[in-house]
């Protein structure tokens, strides 16, 4: 029998930032304890790892939601909210953020509510995909480069859908860390995070193509995250520690891309005409400052997936 909220382990209490990643699960100390003692220790470590993984998924989903919230706020403000539905992702992402954020620190709302919020975010994201595809299609030229560049972006609602999905995963992990929707939890998370990374990298690729890759750093989000996604997917298919280690490195690098991207984009804003003084224009016409953290969110989820796989495979 599982309890909804597990007793806090000493290790888990201290974990509040993604800076403190669990060491490789099952890592042992210098002495060789007895079998029973070791099992208990392993159980504790695994429980702690799963606990942390669940929270990390919440954190990742929350970062995604924050990225979507800020990005859609900017972009839909730019679009003058001419369609009332353009408020939906703001509301949905805000709720998603409001539930994922406390859950990251272990303070969960009642589960059904939590789940409903995440489901709503996912549904809003999926609906947004439809709206945005319609917006592209109705412009002269239809599915053309010009409209892919400048009509409503497909990638943004996709991120909201992912945020909702991972939020639901995190809710479920609290109850059962081994399976999700009937699939092995770590692997499912790994596979979907990998897919999310590929999709987000595709979006960055499209928009950086629009920017003609004028800065070599613009190649980073279309190289590192796809590599990380590939390693993550491989690790999901084949439980090999070496693959997991490689995937972990790739995901940490992807997370770094997500953080550094904000800096790069701020630099981009600053070098547009008028710089920060002309913020009312450059925040909207410059590179989107809130977009890169999507990579951070997905990388966090990928790392959590790796931890879960390690814990469950141990």
């Amino acid at each position: 029998m599982t309890t909804l909220v597990r007793p806090r382990t000493p290790e888990a209490v201290g974990v509040s930032t993604f800076g403190e990643w669990p060491a490789v699960a099952g890592g042992d100390g210098g002495h060789r304890p007895g079998l029973r003692e070791r099992r208990v220790a392993e159980e504790t470590v695994r429980d702690a790892a799963e606990e942390r993984a669940g929270r990390t998924v919440h954190l990742g989903a929350g970062v995604l939601a924050l990225s979507v919230l800020a990005d859609s706020a900017l972009e839909h403000y730019r679009g003058s909210f001419h369609n009332k539905a353009m408020v939906a992702p703001l509301v949905s992402a805000t709720l998603s953020l409001a539930t994922n954020a406390p859950a990251t620190f272990g303070a969960r709302a009642p589960l059904p509510l939590l789940d409903a919020v995440q489901a709503a975010a996912a549904a809003t994201g999926v609906a947004g995909l439809g709206f945005h595809a319609f917006n592209i299609g109705k412009r002269p030229g239809g599915l053309s480069w010009l409209n892919l560049f400048y009509a409503a972006p497909v990638g943004a609602p996709f991120a909201l859908a992912l945020s909702g999905f991972f939020g639901r995963c995190a809710v479920r992990l609290a109850g059962d860390s081994r399976t999700l929707f009937g699939w092995p939890a770590g692997r499912l998370l790994a596979a979907t995070a990998a897919g999310g990374l590929i999709g987000t990298a595709a979006e960055a690729g499209l928009l950086h193509f629009r920017g003609a890759y004028h800065n070599p750093a613009m190649a980073l989000p279309v190289t590192i995250p796809p590599v990380a996604a590939g390693l993550l997917a491989a690790a999901a298919l084949k439980p090999a520690p070496a693959l997991r280690r490689a995937a972990r490195v790739g995901l940490v690098a992807t997370a770094a891309v997500g953080v550094a991207g904000v800096g790069f984009h701020l630099f981009g804003v600053s070098r547009n005409m008028g710089g920060f003084r002309n913020l009312s224009q450059n925040l909207l016409n410059g590179p989107p400052v809130p977009a890169p953290p999507s990579f951070l969110g997905l990388a966090l989820i990928g790392l959590a997936a790796l931890s879960l796989m390690e814990a469950n495979d141990a």
Binding site: H82, N278, S280, Q281
Partner: peptide, 17 residues
Amino acid sequence: ASPRGYVRMNFDRRDPW
């Protein structure tokens, strides 16, 4: 309009300025 130009270029759209 310089350094600030315009952002919203489509039909029936106006920038707040």
